[in-house]
Structure formats: structure tokens, C-alpha cells
Design a protein around this nucleic acid. Structure first.
Lengths: 208, 208
DNA sequence: TAAAATAAAAATGTATACAAAAATAGTTTT
DNA sequence: AAAACTATTTTTGTATACATTTTTATTTTA
């Protein structure tokens, strides 16, 4: 597996220090590769919002912040509805079937967070991809990837797994009935609700 | 100046071959640096949508496509209105003044395209930044940076410079009158109009 | 002749070595 | 004692060298 992915997992599982600078040499020892691929990974993760600058040259793992979560979910709501709207008429049985298969995988317990994030994106993307809008799709994919940093709360203290799965099912049923406006409205609510729950939780634990 | 920026300029000015793979060695000779910083720049530009994959490992300069332009401007319209809405009540004389100074710079003739792109972003950002929403701002900045690839059309055959400048002025006057809903509506129209003009033009020259 | 397989080449990816820059510790000065 | 400067150490950035992969050209086979 590639370094970038390993670092993301280690960030999610709190295996790397938060706030302190990540040292390329230390990471190159940890993952048994030279500094070059480490450097690549750090630059790339910084560009994707998984790392932030530390001082003039270093990078660090940024804190999770309600403002970031809120922004990510606000953007997801707007852009995914835009994309879903473009896709809707082109979604066929094929896509619904594929989406359902990802849903089934998501039902597994003890799935690593990063896999949950990927599968969740695969579900949504199975519906979006028929729109054939690569640029919009790429941005939306990036937002979903960033939101993964917050998944520990959703599947942990917020216990949002079951509700989210139900909403996914309902979305598919609206699609099968070809009820576009209901599907759109439901998708927006699905995203907004997750965002509000997460944001409020983050605000709360901040003040405590 | 850093390599990344130079490559962007050379892409805009058609100094590099479109569609063909960009060879790291060739670029390292062209810019008189080793392959490592070239590689960094190519990876980073690929992540930002300025380059696309070519084959299994290489990168190339992607064609300009109406679909991409349309997506970029649709996203800009949604997200910038979101951000502007958050910023509006916090925009003071300071910010309007700063925005106007960028507008003045944009009035210069014979400004390189890449500078026009930067100044245009600076104008918008001068208004957005008071919202203090780094995540949303970063995504919007990325969209603006991608849209720069299409600026050659806007300032060339479309001759959209003057109109755009007028719209910027009108936006500032709505802000000074503290007319939020008019300002918001106008910002959306400003972005959507630019998008529609660009998209239609790209569609047209495609079929000719 | 076209397709598949193989061999040669050229390109990218990674490791190590070195240069430049940044961070730290120590010293001096006020 | 605090601030400012200097020297040292550490860290990142870049160059060169090597390994691996990918691409291209050639040959073989159907």
C-alpha cells in the first residue's frame, strides 16, 4: 500500500502526534522508505487539507474544528445536489444495484474508518458518475475525502451509522420510483443532517 | 520565482505541447533545475487540475473543455455566494478600499493573464476573507485558480474585461449601501454570466 | 497482414549525498 | 531578567545515482 494512505490511516487512528511538526526523517524510518516519497506524501496531504503548515517549512496534523466540518458539509450539500441533479435521469438499474452492493459492505461491523469513508464515497459516486462531469465529480470527491477526517465522531460518539444507512436506502427507493424532487430533497437533508450533528457535537466538546 | 508558477505561465502562453506527455528531463533542462522540483511541481499541478494523467505515469496538459468551464463556474456561483453571505455583515470600509485597489490594478492594459487571474481573486477574496472560513475559502480559491486556465478566452475573443470590471464596481456600490440581497444576487449573476458566455463560446468553437 | 510476444529504450520512482534554510541553544548586551 | 544577536544543530530542499516501471521497437506467430 502506498505511503500516503498509510499516513492517513495513522492520522485517523491517532498514531501520529497532533499539532507537532511531522519530521520527514522520523516518518522515513517509521515507514522504511527514503525521504523522497515521504516528502511527496506530505506535500500531497497538505494540498488535500489533511496536513497544515507548521512554521515556515514543516507540516502538522491540524485540529478538527467545527468550522471546517460545517464548511465541508455545506459545500457537500450544494455541490452533491448539483451533481446528483445532473445525474438523476441517467441513473439506471445497473447503478442502483452497484450502489446497493456498497451499502451491503457498509453494513459490516469492525470496518476500519478509512474503508467506511471510501465505501460511503463509492455509494454516492455510483449514482453521480453517470452524469459524466469529471470536474465537478473531482471536487466533490475531494470534499468527501476531507470529511473522512471527521468520521471518527460520526461512527463513534454520534452513532450516526444506522441512520445514515437508512437514509441511503430511502434515497435508492426514491430513485427507483423515479421521484427526482423527493430524491434531491432527501439527499440534501441526508448531507445537511450529518453536517449539523457533527458541527454541533464539535462545538459542544470544545466548550466542555 | 518557483517552478510551479513558471510552468503555469508556460501552459497559459502555449509554450508547452498540449496532449503530449510532459517529460521531467525535458522540463528540468528547460528550467535549469533537477528533476525533483520538477516532479514536485507536476504532482502538485496534477492535483490542482492543471495537468492530467497521460498513460500510467506521465502527465499532460489537458484540453480546455466547455464541460469543465461550466462546472467550475457553477461551483463558483454556489460556493462564492455561500461565502459572501457569511462575509457580508463583516465587510467594512477597509475591505472595500482594498478591493477597489485591486480593481484599479486590473484596469491596466497588457497585464499577463496569470496576473489578471491573481488580481481577480484578490478582489473577490478581499471581500470573502473577513468571513474567516478557511476551508470554504481554500476550496473557492482552488476553483478560481482552475478557472485561470480559461482566462485567455475571456480576455481575448470574448472581450469580457470591461463588463466584468463594471460588475465589480456595481458590487462594491451595493456593499457600500449595505444592500445584502442585491449584492448577493449581483455576485451570482456576475459569476453565472461569465460562466455562460465562456461555456457557450467553447461549445461553439468545438463544432466549427 | 495483424496480433501477440519479446527485447530494447526511455521514462518515472526511490535512495543517498549534499546545499540551503530554519529552528534551537547559547551568549552577549541592555 | 528580558531581548537581541550569534553559533550550532537540525531539518528541509535539491542534485545526482540507481532501481523499477512503462513505453516503444522489433521479432515471432497465427
Amino acid at each position: 500500500m502506498d505511503i500516503r494512505q498509510k499516513i492517513k490511516e495513522d492520522i485517523l487512528n491517532n498514531q501520529l502526534p497532533r499539532g507537532l511538526p511531522l519530521r520527514q526523517t522520523a516518518l522515513s524510518n517509521r515507514y522504511n522508505v527514503s525521504r523522497i516519497p515521504i516528502r511527496d506524501a506530505l506535500l500531497s496531504l497538505k494540498a488535500d487539507g489533511w496536513l497544515s503548515p507548521h512554521g515556515k517549512a514543516g507540516v502538522m496534523i491540524p485540529d478538527l474544528h467545527w468550522k471546517e466540518a460545517e464548511d465541508l458539509y455545506l459545500m457537500r450539500a450544494e455541490l452533491e445536489c448539483l451533481l446528483f441533479n445532473m445525474a438523476f435521469d441517467l441513473i439506471g438499474e445497473q447503478e442502483v444495484k452497484q450502489a446497493r452492493s456498497f451499502l451491503l459492505e457498509l453494513d459490516q461491523k469492525n470496518l476500519p474508518l478509512i474503508s467506511r469513508g471510501e465505501l460511503n464515497w463509492c455509494f454516492h459516486n455510483a449514482l453521480y458518475k453517470v452524469a459524466k462531469r469529471p470536474t465537478l465529480q473531482r471536487v466533490v470527491e475531494g470534499l468527501n475525502a476531507q470529511a473522512v477526517r471527521y468520521l471518527g465522531f460520526q461512527y463513534g460518539p454520534l452513532g450516526h451509522r444506522e441512520k445514515s444507512q437508512n437514509q441511503h436506502e430511502v434515497l435508492l427507493s426514491f430513485i427507483e420510483r423515479r421521484d427526482k424532487s423527493a430524491a434531491l430533497k432527501h439527499l440534501r437533508q441526508h448531507i445537511e443532517e450529518a453536517g449539523v450533528l457533527l458541527t454541533n457535537y464539535l462545538k459542544k466538546i470544545k466548550t466542555e
